[in-house]
Computed example of a mutant assay.
Amino acid sequence: MADVFREFFEDDHDRVVVYADPDGETVLHEGAATVRANGWVELPSGRLLSPSAVHHIDTHPNAA
């Protein structure tokens, strides 16, 4: 049953930049990622980034 709701509460992205600070100086990840409903960010390798480690995510990194 959880798989049915996953598509509504998780966001898959082909290209993101995940930042650890408000100024965007510390990049935690660049590339594909899934933002889970609970705030965790899953990387293609299976590694998870904690919501407490992530300040913000740019989902349109090439936009001007």
Rank of each mutant, 00 (worst) to 15 (best):
N62R: 13
R36I: 00
L28T: 01
A33L: 03
V17Q: 01
G24E: 04
S45H: 11
I57K: 08
V18Q: 09
P44C: 01
V54M: 07
V41Q: 03
E25S: 01
G39V: 07
L49S: 12
A20R: 04
A64W: 02
A20D: 06
H60S: 13
A33V: 05
F5R: 11
S52R: 09
D58R: 07
G24T: 04
V54F: 06
E10A: 06
S50T: 05
R15T: 08
A33H: 09
T34P: 11
P22C: 00
D23N: 03
H60T: 15
P51I: 04
F8R: 10
H60M: 11
V17E: 09
D23Y: 05
P44A: 01
A37Y: 15
W40Q: 10
E10V: 00
V27A: 07
A2D: 10
H13N: 03
V16L: 08
D23A: 06
A63G: 11
E42T: 08
G24W: 05
A64F: 00
Y19I: 06
H60N: 15
V16D: 09
D14V: 06
G39I: 05
S45G: 07
A2V: 06
F9W: 14
D12F: 13
A32D: 04
D58T: 15
Y19N: 02
S50P: 06
V4G: 00
L49V: 05
A2W: 12
P61I: 08
A63H: 03
H55K: 08
P22N: 01
H55V: 02
V18Y: 08
T59F: 08
D58I: 09
R6L: 01
F5N: 09
I57A: 04
F9H: 07
V4Y: 04
P51L: 03
V18M: 09
G46T: 07
G31W: 07
S50D: 07
G31T: 02
R47C: 03
G46K: 07
T59P: 00
M1Y: 13
P61W: 08
T59Q: 10
D3T: 00
D21F: 02
D23P: 02
H29K: 04
F9R: 09
R6Y: 02
N38L: 07
H29C: 08
V16W: 02
F9T: 12
A33T: 03
H60I: 14
N38P: 05
R47Y: 15
I57M: 03
Y19K: 00
E42H: 11
D11T: 14
L28I: 10
T34M: 14
A37R: 12
R6P: 00
P61G: 10
H29R: 11
S45Y: 10
T34Y: 13
E7M: 00
A64Q: 11
T59Y: 11
V41T: 14
A64Y: 05
L43S: 13
R47A: 15
H56F: 11
A33W: 06
H60G: 07
W40V: 13
F9D: 07
N62Q: 15
H56K: 03
L28V: 03
E25P: 01
V27I: 14
L48E: 10
T59M: 02
D23M: 05
T34D: 10
M1W: 11
D3F: 01
R36V: 01
S52A: 10
S52K: 04
D21I: 02
D14A: 12
A32M: 01
I57E: 03
E42Q: 15
D58Y: 09
L28S: 09
